[in-house]
């Protein structure tokens, strides 16, 4: 039973990795509590992989109500967040730990 459970987990990871192999990758950097770039343009109806690199020494939380995503990224670490497929439009995101400065926008275009 234990072996079956482990096998199921590994299989799902492998399947997921294979399924996500051809997904477009976008990168955003957190530096001095700001997002670089602050505007990311992605294609509509396409699942993308967003890599968030926190170059600050302090943690930040990538969050977006519109995208329904929320992830803590420790200082000096990076995180991968899958987004979409999304309809055309603007989807803001922010750093919850520094909401006044860390703000960005994902613009979905046809």
């Amino acid at each position: 039973m234990n072996c079956m459970f482990k096998l199921a987990i590994i299989t799902s990871f492998v399947f997921c990795s294979l399924a996500n192999a051809d997904i477009p990758i976008f990168t955003v950097e957190i530096r001095d509590h700001l997002f670089y770039p602050s505007l990311i343009k992605i294609p509509a109806d396409t699942k993308i992989k967003l890599i968030v690199i926190n170059t600050d020494s302090s943690p930040e939380e990538f969050e977006s109500y519109e995208l329904n995503r929320e992830k803590v990224i420790m200082g000096g670490a990076k995180a991968t967040i899958f987004i979409g497929p999304l309809a055309p439009g603007d989807y803001p995101f922010f750093g919850e730990f520094n909401p006044k400065t860390a703000q960005g926008l994902i613009r979905v275009e046809q």
Partner: peptide, 11 residues
Amino acid sequence: FMQIGLLDSDG
């Protein structure tokens, strides 16, 4: 699950 890509989110 959607965040790690195990499930796809739609509109």
